[in-house]
Structures are given as structure tokens and as C-alpha cells.
Amino acid sequence: MKNKHANNIRYSIIVLLEEDNDGFADYICSLDKIFSDAEGSYEIIIIANGKEAALRQELPEIRIQGKLKAFSLNKKAPQAVCLSSGFKESCGEIIMVCGSYQQLTHNAIKHLLTFLDKETDIISPWRQNRVDSKFSQLQSKVFNMMTQKIANTDLKDLSCIVKIFRRRVLEETELYGNMYRFLPVIAAKKGFKTKEVPCEHYQERGKQGLYSPTEYFGRIVDIFTLFFHTRFVKKPLRFFSILGSIFIFLGSSALVYAFFQKLFFDYPIGGRPVLLMALLCVVFGIQLASTGLLGEIIAFTHGRARKEYNIDKII
């Protein structure tokens, strides 16, 4: 937010350099070319996330005067941190975030920019005709399907790093950890107008094929975080009380059943697993409920300033 009004910049292009890319200099120059054709002034901000050496090596080859800023994070950080540090340095009204290499074609980016009318706050590209390998297409499809189902959204492609949005979107949306990926979903829940535009893209580079198990696990946890974040952040007890009451119901009905047998039919219950299972379920239920209460206390004591609604205008 530095110099916000000092120089009237329309576009800020934030490039996250997270993977090695030999053609990085060319890539930046081509971005420069796209925007020098577009209306309005622009700036390019490069944030190297743990790739300082690569940035230093490529930087002399990027010949853009005055419009380039480059930063390097001293330590590898989650994407959201990286983005927000780039965002702090930017002053454009419209932010475009790009990854380490060119994902979308020139025409696609120009095409996306035309969709940013007054009503729209975020544009998310939808790589409709994927040119990647069948396997990575499948992975991406499964991931997006899960997100759609769990977060209840109709966005079809969240795996693309490129996103274009208005400044106020990021000013009013708290991102942390790996949540950048879900920015259009979170922002749409906040009432920002989101558009998904089909466009052409280049083949994915960098790491491909089978990822490590940690990464798959991380993705699933991310989707769960999104689910919890968008629905229960202000009312955690609701989430836990649903789970807890299922367990308590199961446990107590099993207990009633066992005692009924003992009382009226004189079945021995002491040595049978049903009693222990019932007790175990009740204990689980109580643990979940008490965790929910803990959550509620956190939401109450620390989340009061955080409102459930988002105000567009006040007169």
C-alpha cells in the first residue's frame, strides 16, 4: 500500500518464483509485452520464495526499465505469506498473480483481462482443454471435484496459479497457509463477484506425475481447512456438536440396549465388547463436544472483531 496514490498504477503483476525456470527472463519480458499493449500503467513485482540464487542469476537478463521490482524472501514461506508480502509492495488497482513459469498463453491473458468489467472482482482461468498428460489431468480433476463437492462451489479449475482480482479482494480476505489456491472460493463466499473464464494454456512444467504422499495428504487437509474456514470459523460448536451428538447417540443407545438385555433377559454383558464400545463412543462424543466448546471460547474471545457479514457500502 506504499505510494498508493503517488503513481496511478492500474495493474500490478505479482510473480511468485517458487520453482527453477531457465526461461524466466523471457517469461517476464513476455508479461511486460502483454501489459505494454494493454491500457493503463503497470508494474511487475517478482517475489522469490527460497530461490534467491535463481533470481539473482536471471535478473540481469530482464531488461525492463522502471517497472520492475524484485524481492526475495529470506526463508521459504507458504504461498499465502509470499503473496501477501508481494501485495504489500504493490500499488495497482488490479492484481494479477503468476507462477514461476508461463501457464497461460498471451491471448488467454489478454482475453481474461477483457472480462474484468466493473461488476467483477475476481477472474479465475479455467483451462478447459487441458494439454497436460492424462495422469496430471486426472489428478487435477479429482482435486477440483473434491473441492467443488466439499466447499459447495461451481468453480471448475482452482489448480492454476494465475488469478486476476481487484485490490479490495485481498484487502478484505485473510489468507494463510495454502489457502491462496482457494482465493476465488473464499472471496465468492464473502460476496465478491467471481467469474471463471475458459482459456488456452501451456503444458505444466516443474514437478509432475506422481507427487509425494505428503503432498496428497496436504491437499486433502487443505480442502478440509477450506470447508471449516468458510462455514464454521465463527460457530465451531455447530461442527463439533453434530459429530459429537452422533457419537453420544450411538454410545448411549448401545448402553441402553445392553442394560435392557441385562435387566430383562439376564444376558451377561460384562465380558462383551458392546459395553466397551458404547462407553468408548460416549467418551468420543464428549471429547468432540468439549473441543467444540473450546473452539467457541476462542471464537468468542478472539473473533469478535471479525464479522460474519461483509459490507459493500454505507451511506
Binding site: 464473502k190 460476496g191 457479514y309 461483509n310 459490507i311 459493500d312 457500502k313 454505507i314 451511506i315
Partner: peptide, 8 residues
């Protein structure tokens, strides 16, 4: 007047 971004 207060205007919300979406229906809450």
C-alpha cells in the same frame, strides 16, 4: 443505509 456484498 448499509449494503451487504451478498445475501447473508
Amino acid at each position: 443505509g448499509i449494503k451487504f456484498r451478498r445475501n447473508y
